[in-house]
Structure formats: structure tokens, C-alpha cells
């Protein structure tokens, strides 16, 4: 006797709770995240193209893009270089307090952005600990340089934490074989080790960059917020909201979101590139 499958049977799961868990999770996520984000998209669609364009290309806005994206780029670049060094030193060498320092690397991740903002401002303003050393040749606080400092702080853990695991998994034998073939340390580093680190460095850069362009709290204290000079884009959005210019705020938000999503895609691709390189070593 041949029993054909019944409709209900096919969907049955072995482990319990699928419907409940997925249902609740989707409901919550939709209510808290998806629907509000959707509202933003819908709102922006209500604007005319001309209005949208003039809003997002106003001179003050363009200046804010230059600052937000530019400083984020520089900050992420600084992090790639020095964060890479930090990762190297933490993985490869032993020195006192190494474990403590390793744990502290995550501080920018856990510290409230406002606290970071006021702390950095205090240090780098003209009578701050560092600021007074640099004054009057270099001013950090209330200049784009200050913004760069803040965004470097914010992105610090991203590069270090992305590069560390790759360094830890690096096979000592590769370096040994390079040495046995006659390469000196510099050559080994440049030709053998660095190529392994590129994917992780690139991913770390992208993550730090993505985080920095939207950063608000740690920047607004140290930036000075002068229109056309030291205003970041998120601040402009905030200002427009205060003025009840919902449309303008929405337009800017859409531009920022578009940039974030492009970056997210890029990061996704980079992470896949990185994991492919890692798994090549018999993970």
C-alpha cells in the first residue's frame, strides 16, 4: 500500500519551537527595526526629486559630507597602520600588562560615545593635557583634526580585532620556510606575511570607516560644529529635526543610509574574501 505524503506532514519540524521563536523574533524585529526604517524610505519617496537633490547638495551639506567621509577615511587609514601594529605587538610579543591592554582595546566599543567625546575634548583643547603641548602650532580641538582624532578612537577596535585572529592563525612554518630559503625579516614580512593580512586589514578598514561616517556622540564635542567648517552630516540631520524640517532630515538620512548599505555590501564581500584566504590553510 502506497501512502502519498500528506500536506500537513511536510512542514513538521523535529525540534520544537520553530514557529514560536521565528514568529516572535520577526514580529519584534519588524516592529522595532524594519517598519521604522521602512517609514523613512516611504517618507523620502514622498519628496520630489528636485527638492531631494537641492537638499542633499546644498553647500553646507556638501561641506559636511567632505568632513564626515573625509575624516572617517583618514581615521580608518590611521587605524589600519597603527591598529595593525597594535595587533602585531599583542599577538607576537610578550610584555608586562599585555593582557590588560588587550582587554582595553575594546574600550571604544563599550564606552558611551558622549563620554568619549568629552574626554577627548578635554585632552585636546588648548589647555588640555595634549592640546597645551601642541598649541599654538597645531590645534586639535574644534578643527577637522579633532574630528579625525575622535573617529580614530571610534574605529580602533575594528582593525585590531579583525587582524588579531588572522595573525594568531598564521603558521610559523611559513615564516620558517621563507627564512630557510634565504629571505631576511623585512622580505619575509613584506612578501609572505603582509599578503596574508591584506583581507583582514581591508575588512577592518571598511568596518572602521562605516562606523565612523555615522558617528555622532564622540565627535560633536570636539568638532566645534561650525557650519561649512566642522559640521558632520549626522549633526546636520539633528539640526534639521530640531527645526522640524523632517523632509530635509529624511533626505540626508537617505544619503547616509545609501552610503552605509554600499559599505555593508563591501564589507560582506571583503569578509568572504578574508575567510576564503584563511580556510585555505586547512581550518
Amino acid at each position: 500500500m502506497d501512502r502519498p505524503s500528506r500536506r500537513g506532514r511536510r512542514k513538521r519540524r523535529i525540534l520544537p519551537g520553530f514557529g514560536l521563536s521565528l514568529g516572535f523574533a520577526l514580529l519584534y524585529f519588524s516592529l522595532i527595526v524594519l517598519i521604522p526604517l521602512g517609514a523613512l524610505i516611504v517618507r523620502s519617496a514622498g519628496m520630489s526629486l528636485g527638492q531631494f537633490w537641492s537638499t542633499v547638495t546644498a553647500p553646507r551639506v556638501l561641506a559636511s559630507y567632505r568632513l564626515s567621509f573625509g575624516a572617517a577615511f583618514v581615521g580608518a587609514a590611521i587605524n589600519v597602520v597603527f591598529g595593525g601594529v597594535v595587533a602585531w605587538v599583542l599577538v607576537r610579543y610578550r610584555f608586562p600588562l599585555r593582557k590588560l591592554i588587550d582587554a582595553l582595546v575594546d574600550l571604544p566599543f563599550a564606552l558611551p560615545t558622549a563620554v568619549a567625546g568629552i574626554a577627548l575634548t578635554t585632552i585636546y583643547c588648548t589647555n588640555g593635557w595634549i592640546g597645551r603641548l601642541l598649541d599654538p602650532h597645531v590645534r586639535v580641538a574644534f578643527t577637522p583634526l579633532g574630528v579625525i582624532v575622535a573617529l580614530t578612537f571610534i574605529g580602533l577596535p575594528f582593525v585590531v580585532r579583525t587582524v588579531q585572529p588572522v595573525l594568531e592563525d598564521l603558521d610559523a612554518e611559513i615564516e620558517e620556510s621563507a627564512a630557510s630559503l634565504g629571505a631576511n625579516r623585512r622580505q619575509t614580512f613584506v612578501r609572505v606575511i603582509l599578503p596574508e593580512l591584506w583581507p583582514a586589514l581591508a575588512t577592518g578598514f571598511a568596518l572602521a570607516f562605516a562606523r565612523a561616517i555615522g558617528e555622532y556622540g564622540s565627535v560633536i564635542f570636539i568638532a566645534g560644529n561650525m557650519p561649512m567648517k566642522t559640521e558632520i552630516t549626522p549633526l546636520l540631520i539633528w539640526i534639521k529635526l530640531e527645526q522640524f524640517d523632517y523632509a530635509g532630515a529624511t533626505a540626508l538620512a537617505v544619503v547616509m543610509l545609501a552610503a552605509s548599505f554600499v559599505l555593508l555590501l563591501l564589507i560582506n564581500l571583503l569578509q568572504r574574501w578574508a575567510s576564503r584566504r584563511q580556510h585555505a590553510y586547512g581550518d
Partner: peptide
Amino acid sequence: TLIDLPFAVSPVISGLIYVLLFGLQG
């Protein structure tokens, strides 16, 4: 991938979306 959305959104925008829903002109 969607779960990571809030990380990609600037904090100011995270507030903005709720203003668009529940604010006076929302």
C-alpha cells in the same frame, strides 16, 4: 544579514525614524 542593520545606521538616524513615526508631523 538583516539583523546587523541597526549597526549600519547612524545613531541620529536611529532616532529620526521614530520621530518620523511618532513625532507631531509623523
